[in-house]
C-alpha cells in the first residue's frame, strides 16, 4: 500500500516536473527568438515563404470549416430564437460568437493541426538527420535561421486567416438566414454591423496573435528537441499538436476571463 502511494506520488511529481520544465523551455525559446528577431541579417524572403505556405495550406480548410460553423450557428440559434419569436437577433449572436470566439479559436486549432504539425515534422527531420547540427557548424544560428521566420509568419498569418474566417462564417450565417429563414437581407446586414464593435474585433484578433505565437513556439520546440529517428519525428509531431491545442484553449480561457472581468 505505502509502496503504491509512493510510486503514485513519484509519477505525479515527475509529471509536474515535466510540465514546469516544458514551460521553462518554451519561455527560453521565446526570449531567444525575440532576441534573434533584431539581429541582422534580415531575410524577408524567408518569412514570406513561410507565411505563404501557412496561408495557402490553410485557406481551403479554414474556408470550409468557417462556412459550416456559420451555417450551424445560425441554425442552432434559430432553433432557440424561434421559440422566443425574436429571429432578428440571430444576426447579432452569429456575428458576436464568430468574431469574439469561434473564428479565432477554430482558425488557430486548424493552423496548429496543419501547419504546427508540419513545422515540427520538418524541424524534427532536420534534427534527426543532423541538419540542425550542420547549420551550427556552418556558423548559422538555428534559431535565427529556422525559428524566427516561422515565428513571425505564424504571428502574422493566424490573425489574417482569422479575419478571413470571420468573414466567411458571417456569410454562412447570412445565407441560411436570408435564403432559408426568410429574414430580409438588409435587416440581417444592419443587425450584424450594428452589433459588432471595434472592441469585439480587436480582442478576437489579439487572442489570435498570442495563439499564433503559441503554435510557432510549440512547433519549433518540439521539432528542435526531437530524438530517435523517424519514430521520434512521429511522436514529436503528435505531441506538438496536442500541446498546442491545450495551450490555445487554456490561453483562450485566460484572455476571455481577463476581457470579461477587467476590460468589460
Amino acid at each position: 500500500m505505502a509502496k503504491n502511494i509512493i510510486s503514485f506520488a513519484h509519477k505525479v511529481g515527475a509529471h509536474i516536473v515535466y510540465y514546469i520544465d516544458y514551460v521553462g523551455a518554451l519561455t527560453r525559446l521565446f526570449f531567444k527568438t525575440l532576441y534573434w528577431i533584431f539581429i541582422p541579417p534580415f531575410k524577408r524572403q524567408r518569412i514570406l515563404r513561410q507565411a505563404f505556405i501557412i496561408g495557402v495550406e490553410s485557406l481551403p480548410i479554414v474556408s470550409l470549416v468557417a462556412f459550416f460553423i456559420g451555417v450551424i450557428l445560425a441554425l442552432q440559434t434559430a432553433y432557440q430564437m424561434q421559440k422566443l419569436s425574436s429571429e432578428i437577433y440571430i444576426a447579432n449572436i452569429v456575428a458576436l460568437s464568430i468574431v469574439r470566439e469561434l473564428g479565432p479559436v477554430i482558425t488557430s486549432l486548424i493552423v496548429a493541426g496543419r501547419c504546427g504539425a508540419a513545422i515540427t515534422a520538418e524541424l524534427g527531420t532536420m534534427k534527426v538527420t543532423e541538419q540542425i547540427d550542420a547549420l551550427e557548424t556552418l556558423a548559422a544560428n538555428p534559431i535565427k535561421y529556422l525559428v524566427v521566420p516561422r515565428f513571425l509568419a505564424f504571428t502574422f498569418m493566424v490573425p489574417v486567416l482569422t479575419m478571413y474566417a470571420n468573414l466567411v462564417g458571417i456569410v454562412g450565417g447570412y445565407l441560411i438566414c436570408v435564403y432559408r429563414l426568410g429574414i430580409r437581407s438588409s435587416m440581417y446586414l444592419n443587425m450584424t454591423f450594428d452589433s459588432l464593435q471595434i472592441k469585439d474585433v480587436t480582442t478576437g484578433l489579439f487572442k489570435t496573435l498570442i495563439f499564433g505565437m503559441i503554435i510557432a513556439m510549440v512547433g519549433c520546440l518540439e521539432g528542435m528537441r526531437t530524438e530517435g529517428g523517424a519514430e521520434g519525428v512521429g511522436k514529436a509531431t503528435t505531441l506538438s499538436v496536442v500541446t498546442s491545442f491545450i495551450l490555445i484553449i487554456a490561453a483562450d480561457c485566460v484572455f476571455t476571463a481577463i476581457f470579461y472581468f477587467i476590460f468589460p
Binding site: 527531420t125 532536420m126 538527420t129 543532423e130 541538419q131 547540427d133 550542420a134 557548424t137 556558423a139
Partner: peptide, 19 residues
C-alpha cells in the same frame, strides 16, 4: 566561435544536406 567555424568545416556521416 562562429568566426572560428568559418575556418573549419565538417562533413557529416549522412551528409546532412538541407532538404
Amino acid at each position: 566561435l562562429n568566426k572560428l567555424r568559418m575556418r573549419m568545416a565538417m562533413v557529416f556521416q549522412g551528409g546532412a544536406l538541407f532538404d
